[in-house]
Design a protein around this nucleic acid. Sequence first.
DNA 1: GTTCTGAAGGCTGTATACAAAATACTTGAT
DNA 2: ATCAAGTATTTTGTATACAGCCTTCAGAAC
Lengths: 228, 228
Amino acid sequence: MVNSRMSDDPEMEIKIERQSLHDAILNRLRDMIIEGHLPPGARLNEGQLGARLGVSRTPLREAIKFLASEGLVELIPSRGAMVKEFGAKEVLNMLQVAGALEQFAGRCAVEVASDKGIAAVRAMHDEMLACYRRGDRLDYYKLNQDIHTAIVALADNDTLSEIHARLQTRLKRIRFIGHEGPEKWASAVAEHEEMMEALEARDADRLAKILGEHLTRAWERVKDGLES
Amino acid sequence: MVNSRMSDDPEMEIKIERQSLHDAILNRLRDMIIEGHLPPGARLNEGQLGARLGVSRTPLREAIKFLASEGLVELIPSRGAMVKEFGAKEVLNMLQVAGALEQFAGRCAVEVASDKGIAAVRAMHDEMLACYRRGDRLDYYKLNQDIHTAIVALADNDTLSEIHARLQTRLKRIRFIGHEGPEKWASAVAEHEEMMEALEARDADRLAKILGEHLTRAWERVKDGLES
DNA sequence: GTTCTGAAGGCTGTATACAAAATACTTGAT
DNA sequence: ATCAAGTATTTTGTATACAGCCTTCAGAAC
C-alpha cells in the first residue's frame, strides 16, 4: 500500500536493492545524512522515513540505532533521533584525532607496507593529480579520501582502519561544505605530493610531519564555514 | 509537592536505575559480554536472551545492532549475531591504537589541562596505590582504567575520549583474562608512578614515551593468554 | 555404514498493533 | 489579546504475529 504512491518527493526512491536490506537501509541513511539530504539537527521521523524507503519502522529503527552508535545521529529518549550537529570545536577535535591516527598509520606503514602496496597508493595519487589538472573536483575529492584510507590500510591494522573510516565518515559531511579556493587546492595537492615522496622513501618522521600538517591545513580550510 | 528546580544541567542523570530501558538492555548486554557471561563466539539467541532479560525481541535487537556498531558483536546475515572473537593480532592492534591515542592525549593534556585536573588524576593514582598495597586487585584494576580514561579526558577532546572509551571496552574483556604475576604488577605500578610525574611536570615527550611503553608492556602481559 | 534427500522445527527478519509519551491545537479565563 | 489548561493528534517505544531461511534430524538409496 505504501509503494503505490511514489509521487511524494522529487527524490526518486529506487526501491532498496536486494542486499541484506539491513545494510541497504543503513547505507541509504548514511548517504542521506552525509549528502545533507537530512540536514544536521533534523528529526528523523520514523513513519515518514519508513514510507519513503519502503520499509516498516522495525528495520529502520535498527539502522538508526546502528548509526547512533556510529555517532552520526543522536538519540533523545522518548523523542526519537536527530541528525547530529557538529560544532567548530568538535570538528577541530575530529580532525586532530584523525591526524594523530594517520601519523601513527604512516609510521607503521613505512615499516610494514609492501612496495606493491605503496605503488598502488602512488597510482591513486597520479590519478588524483589528473583530476586536479582537469578541474574535476568531485573525483579529486573522492580519490583524496581513498588515498588517506589506503595509507591507513598500509599499516595493516584493522582496528585502526575501522576507527579511521568512522571518523572519515563524520568528516565527509563537513567537508561537503568546505569550498576551497584554487590556491588552497594547489597547496593541498603539493602536500599530497610531498606525502607520497616521504612514503616512497619510507621516511617515517617526514611522513608523520606532513600528515600532521595536512590535517592542520584541512582545519584552516573549513573552519570559516562553520558556525557555533 | 515538588520543589523541583528546572536544572538545565545535561548531566543530571543519577547514575543508574532510571534508564530508558534501551540503555538498560545495552549496558546489561555489554556487561554480560565483558564479564564473559556470554563467551566469545556464542550465538545470541534472541528468544532466549529476551526471556532472560524480560523484554521482547524488538528492543533487544536494537541493542544488539548498537553493540554491533560498537564492535562487540558480529552480525551474520540471516543468522543472527555472535559475540565477536578477538585473535592475538587484533588485540595487539587494539593496544597499539590505544597507545597512539593515549600518547596524543598526553601531549594535549600537558598543554591544556588545568592543575586541578591533574591533581584529580594524582588523587586517583594515590588511591590506586592504596589498592595495590592491600592487594585489592579488582579495585586496582578499575582505578587503573579510570586513570587512563581521566588522562584522555584531560586533553579536552570529546571525540578522542569517545574513541578511547570504545577501545577500552573491547579491551576490558581481554584483560579480564590477563592474570599478571606479582612482579609484573609491581612494574606496572612503577610505570604509573613515572607517568604521573611526567604529567605533573607537563613533560610531553616523557609522558608520551611512558604511555607508549605502558601499552607495549600490557601486550606482553596478556599475549600468552591468547590463542589463535 | 555412509551419504544424499526431504520434511519438521527453530530462529531470524519484517510488518503490524497497541500503549504511553510528547507535541500541537483548541478553548476558556484573565 | 495573551496566556493557561485541557484535549486531540502525532510519534515513539514495546510487544506480538507471520513469513522465509537455516538447521537438524530422520529415512532411504547406494
